[in-house]
Design a protein around this nucleic acid. Sequence first.
RNA 1: GCCGAGGUGGCGAAAUGGUAUACGCAAGAGACUUAAAAUCUCUCGGCCUUAAAACCAUGCGGGUUCGAGCCCCGCCCUCGGCACCA
Length: 813
Amino acid sequence: MAKDKTYVLGMFPYPSGEGLHVGHGRIFSAVDVMGRYFRMKGKQESQSSDHSPKIAQGSELGGQVLSPMGWDAFGLPAENAAIKAKKNPIDMVPHNYGNFRAQMKNLSFDFDWKHEFATTDPTYYGFTQWLFLHLYEAGLVYREEVAINWCPKCLTGLANEEVMGDGTHERCGTVVTKKSMPQWVMKITNYADRLLNDLSAPVIQSSSNPVDDRKTGKQENRNTNMGLDWPRGILEMQRNWIGKKEGVRVKFQVESPSSLSSLTALEVFTTRIDTINGVTFIVVAPEIADGWINGGFEANEEVKKYIEKSLQKSDQTRQEGEKNKTGVDTGLKAINPWNQEEVPIYVADYVLPDFGTGCVMGVPQYDERDLAFATKYNLEVKDLPLDKYEDVLAKLTKDKVANSETNWHLRDWVFSRQRYWGEPIPLVYCEKCGDQNGVVPLTEKDLPLELPYLESYEPTDTGESPLSRINEWVNTKCPKCGGPARRETDTMPNWAGSCWYFLAFPWWSEKTKTQLDEFKKKSETPYTNFWKEVAKPEIDKWLPVDWYLGGAEHAVLHLLYARFWVKVFQDRGLLDFSEPFLRLRSVGMVLAEDGKKMSKSLGNVINPDEMVAKFGSDAVRLYEMFMGPWDQAISWDTRSLIGQKRFIERIGEAVKKVGDKTSPILSVNLVKLGEKVEKGIVEQKFNTAIASIMEFVNMWRGSDLVMSQNDVNKFAQLLSPFAPICAKSIWDQAETAKWPTFEEVSEMAEVPVTIAVQVNGKLRATVELESSKSKVESEVMKIVMDNEQVKKWAPGEIKKTIFIPGKIVNLVV
RNA sequence: GCCGAGGUGGCGAAAUGGUAUACGCAAGAGACUUAAAAUCUCUCGGCCUUAAAACCAUGCGGGUUCGAGCCCCGCCCUCGGCACCA
């Protein structure tokens, strides 16, 4: 069912000490423009006139609008900055977001401030902890000793998604290493199928999307008819990251040496079972072979040394050997179940332990990597025809040595961080009544579990969280048996708060803490009751988010994690929907004037406060929206900003030209302008919307044309989403009145129109005539055939005439 | 290698298959000013030119069409993401 509401949200910022930058400005200006537009639009009668622009029809968007703002304030940069300043982030962070808020108000961002919160507010993270407990109770959180990605600078473990393509930490740029330690891990892989399928499942009725209603032959750069209306690139990035691979798991018997009796068979994963006849060797990952040795396999020195060396390599250095594959023969042999041939088993570090089974069948005939390896180690390369995939699978399945299997690139989500500045994980270790993980979860009435105020909270390089040093905090009582227990001392990653913040905005207010305290007095399950009675009704009203605007850097981070949590909460009955963000739009990065990424160290950062002080907030907003296509990266150019200041001054001159009745040409153009502005806003083509307003102002100001006061007011409204201060100075109700309708005016028929005249497709003349006549072929041809240029270029017989009403005549001679 | 987005003036860029270069910046000339800044007016793709007209121009080569920046086929280049994924 279409809801009469619009939820417009920008990805909430991380309030760093440096303050808002112009990249934030680009996102939030757009959010504000859209929020302001939909707010005014929502005041229109729901049944608008047939003459209103096409884009406004059939749209559920409108009604009430929610456009909130908050602060994603936990995380490493704040903590690192606080360490440097020798302060506690608890004291520093509110100062930082206070500054962000002031800067946003300075840019006239009209957000719903009454819903504001920071993820670091204990009342907020109490809910984060409660939701974590839901994930825990769903069996989606487990403890495992794994070799995780470790940032040696930030001294914490990281999720796969936080390691960039070049092997560095996405926050600090340090090369990530491996460290083996026990971790809390979230079973996001349980949801891999749904996370993949729901990207293309039809969640939006096409008629409800104003953009789809447009008649356009052009293929848009995003999914429009099916599934999430997200940029294609981001959908692809998520698909690739989830990385579904369908293949076959095949068992090879191993000619087991007496040293390891349990090693009788190994399994390989392949997507090309049809090439199994060409197998001439087997390769296992060093980690697998290491397991055999630990199990008692007596490998020779060369093998042991190779494995030892490989295990010390980071993923990064292991990949550097891409062209130069190394490996060593284990001396073991395997039997190919398809043709019973005996092949050698090698260990090589080009095989990864965590994809498939960590064992690969070497088919040099059909696989480049295997060929490189075979060439290097003088292994046989066969030359055989392919078998039929289904035949091989059927036979091997019947022989019970193979089965179809799906593998995923997606790994479970390493969730614990060995740092101070995050939500404490609400679990305690109790020797008496701990579960399979040795822990007892806190109960609802224990929440929030507050982060203690520490004088010293520097991370350690031992992998121990700073919280572990605080005995009075660590030592606690078991919530179940009351006996002695220890708290979990790792904290949550900064993604935790952003995984559900969009669910909190609709119901969050200053009163939330008091309300929650009331629930705490009344019941043992205050959070559950609060959710049911206070939060859920508002969530039902406002979610999912209709428009989500932000940076593409979150494609496989926040956007994936948040989708995962929402699906879990749906399964837990906390929510009634499965996808949080219906329409996603990603902003292009704002680069420095030198074309490089803005950074403090390069000294090329543009400070928006300075820009506002110099040019005014309207000019800065206009420039952010006008500088180029909103979704495209662009270099900042302060010189160009002057143009927006001039534009505002020209508006001031134009609006003085008021008359009793609007000049016909302006009447007609005002209607067209209204359509262009609305279309520009809903399609995020803010640059062309502003250009249209400029054109209109140029025409109005540079002539003796006038507008009626009523039309001047309408014009001010069109301007107000972009330049609210200027608009308000023209008409004091420009921001608050309902969005005007732009109906066709009677002057439409009278205003002159220029028709292009082509001969054989080349422009040879233009003719001008009244709009109404320009649509009638006989009227147009009368004038065309009388034109000197036409007589010159088409003197003889005209074979064919193409007439496009109101636009063009093409004479074929 | 795979996936995605792009390639149009000096620069940022416009353009439902229908007048390419809108809008803005920069630049040049002029006005105002003692002067500068600001502002205003005009010019501003290339070629040729006093001017006009013609011709040539949307990365390259073909094609479809009355008509292609846009659609189709084959390339080149730039940017972003992923990648020894078996």
